[in-house]
């Protein structure tokens, strides 16, 4: 059976990663759309794609320096270190390149295909944009789900800026790491299985979206 604390950790993980993903989508999706309208974005595309694989510990370290009491944000009174908000911020930055990169590919295809189609059928600029968004929605949703999966499975940021505080900033990945360090494998395995189950559900959902809507 899963203890109350473990259940709370699972729910916190979903909340933190979900919020981070939603936050990232606020700036990532419009950025992707704007990029599709620009003509020469090869370099930007390459930079974003290279950032997809950024090590989470590196990002965690940078955020730690930024948010620490002697960091550049301290004089502004921003005290986020070792809070769930710090993890949310870190994970949202982490998934931004992935979300931009994957949604950009979907939107780029849609802009070319459906943009041309709508124009050729006499749609106004607003109607063209509406059609592009509508037709690329399944792909964009897939991109958001993929980003959530990346946020949920990361450890470096949650550990470094969250601090793994029990009942406050502890999430599944940090709880698993702590369990292994302490030799408490039972809880670590239980959490590992839950994490894997969530990943499997995400993967199946993505495959279903791809199959139903015929996304490449």
């Amino acid at each position: 059976m899963i203890s109350d604390e473990t259940l709370a950790t699972i729910l916190r993980s979903i909340y933190v990663s979900g919020t981070a993903t939603l936050l990232a989508s606020v700036w990532s999706l419009p950025t992707s759309y704007v990029l599709t309208l620009k003509r020469r974005v090869g370099i930007v595309e390459a930079v974003i794609e290279s950032l997809v694989g950024i090590p989470t510990v590196l990002l965690g370290l940078l955020l730690y320096i930024l948010l620490s009491s002697s960091g550049p944000l301290a004089p502004l009174g921003i005290k986020l270190l070792y809070t769930p908000q710090a993890i949310i911020l870190g994970e949202s930055i982490l998934v931004t390149p992935l979300m931009i990169s994957t949604s950009y590919r979907v939107l780029k295809n849609s802009v070319v295909m459906y943009g041309e189609l709508a124009l050729s059928l006499g749609a106004s600029k607003t109607q063209v944009m509406t059609l592009i968004v509508k037709e690329s929605l399944p792909g964009v949703v897939a991109s958001i789900i993929m980003s959530f999966s990346r946020a949920l499975g990361e450890l470096g940021i949650a550990m470094m800026v969250g601090g793994n505080i029990s009942g406050y900033t502890r999430v599944m990945t940090t709880a698993i790491a702590l369990g292994v360090a302490r030799g408490e494998f039972e809880e670590a395995i239980a959490l590992g299985l839950v994490l894997m189950a969530i990943m499997v559900v995400i993967s199946v959902t993505l495959k279903l979206i791809n199959k139903v809507y015929g996304i490449d």
Partner: peptide, 14 residues
């Protein structure tokens, strides 16, 4: 709106 083009590879909506 007076000039309409049909693509070689049909583009259909969902």
């Amino acid at each position: 709106r007076k000039v309409v083009y049909v693509h070689e590879k049909p583009i259909l909506l969902r």
